[in-house]
């Protein structure tokens, strides 16, 4: 008798600890055990799946490191955080409410060459919530059955099953928190293409053909002379296997 009373106290404690939302757990508050299954829960309209957002931007910038730093500052100011950073690619997560403005601000930090935005229906949260609700209902039912159990074997089996369901509920709680956090934050991936030196110059260049002709290529190309009119005389020298230069006799 003492042992049975002890087990009843234990069950009451578990209910209080893991399911704070349940009604009062004093023995007087628990409904009397019954073999009649509980009535069906009231109808609830199906919930719309939540939407997760992500964006991919490719930007051309003159100073990639400086721009990466500016983006990190912008993201932190928006309540977001850095997810990963490698070479010229940055992945950040920002609160969903700040997704649009943050994406627009990042796009203005250089020349935007590519932009993708994805909106995906994420029904994982709805799915987990439903399973969680069902699991809690099962645990409540098991607790009620335990109240009416008399045989030691039944008590042990019910306690074991309640512990298993409680473990599942805790696992799903964790999944739900992770899914909610994923939905609460949107991911932005930013990749950089460095600005090449030739692109940073002014668009106009001096329109003098001779200027464009400067350099060794033109100077050493003597094909405009009668010497080099002989095929193979441009240039009129060649290098042997040892790297030594020899003037071609046919070019003299």
């Amino acid at each position: 008798m003492f042992g049975f009373q002890q087990r009843k106290t234990t069950i009451q404690f578990q209910i209080q600890h893991t399911a704070p939302g349940l009604p009062g757990t004093s023995p007087a508050a628990l409904p009397p055990p019954s073999l009649v299954p509980p009535s069906a829960p009231p109808f609830e309209p199906p919930r719309e799946p939540a939407t997760s957002y992500s964006a991919t931007l490719v930007i051309v910038a003159a100073q990639v490191d400086v721009t990466l730093g500016r983006i990190e500052q912008l993201v932190r100011a928006a309540g977001g955080r850095l997810a990963s950073r490698a070479d010229a690619t940055l992945v950040v997560r920002v609160p969903r409410a700040r997704f649009d403005e943050t994406t627009a601000a990042i796009a203005k930090m250089g020349d935007l060459v590519h932009r993708e935005v994805h909106a995906e229906a994420d029904d994982q949260v709805v799915d987990i919530e439903l399973r969680l609700k069902n699991a809690r209902g099962v645990r409540e039912r098991l607790a009620q059955l335990l109240q009416g159990a008399t045989a030691t074997k039944d008590v042990l089996d019910l306690e074991k099953e309640i512990a298993r369901v409680t473990g599942e509920i805790e696992s799903m709680d964790g999944q739900l928190r992770a899914a909610n956090e994923r939905l609460a934050y949107s991911m932005i991936t930013v990749s950089f293409q460095p600005l090449r030196a030739s692109e940073s110059r002014a668009a106009a260049t001096l329109p003098f053909p001779w200027l464009a002709d400067l350099g060794l290529r033109s100077l050493l190309d003597v094909s405009s002379t009668s010497l080099a009119s002989t095929p193979g005389c441009t240039p009129p020298f060649a290098y042997d296997a040892q790297g030594l230069k020899h003037f071609k006799p046919e070019c003299l």
């Binding site: 100077l219 003597v222 405009s224 002379t225 010497l227 230069k245 003037f247």
Partner: peptide
Amino acid sequence: LPGQTDFAYRAMTPDGVVLGVR
């Protein structure tokens, strides 16, 4: 070197060193 077009004057060594005036 005779018969120059792009250069007003060009001269070269047997080794291929070239001097030119535009």
